[in-house]
Amino acid sequence: MTDRHIIVGQAVLPVGMAPDAITLLRFGAVTRNAHRIHYDTEFARSEGLAGPVVMAQLHGCLFYRAAAQFAGEGGQVREVEWQNRAPAGVGERLVVTGTVRAVGGADGEITLDLVERCGSGDVVCCRGRAVVVLG
């Protein structure tokens, strides 16, 4: 059991990645996701996008990683939720940060507010939350 003292408003340390075209191809292949908006530039533009975009599940993985890192070794991530707000393009830097929203739920659950920003303009591409138990 941890002796960390967690308070509301405490920061969730950032986690990031910059998925390039190779990352999207690998991720799409292993999840069997063939949606052309993730790899076909011309098609993505015909859909009103600037170019190929990051898969929703890859955003979810980054939210999960932020929550797992906060929970620490031996901790649990019980819930992760995100809503897509803006598309993230290939090669853009994605960073998930957050704060502690609530402490002291059932079984020591802690609720985190999370946000993912992308690119140099810090555009919010996803907002979400997670429920964790510390290790």
Partner: peptide
């Protein structure tokens, strides 16, 4: 034709509509 599975998004099979993910809530 857009590479999505025909049955992935209910009601859209055979139509030229555009599909986007809106988000997920995952509970383990």
């Amino acid at each position: 034709p857009d590479g999505m599975y025909r049955d992935e998004v209910p009601g859209t099979d055979g139509l030229g509509v555009r599909l986007m993910a809106g988000g997920q809530a995952v509970r383990w």
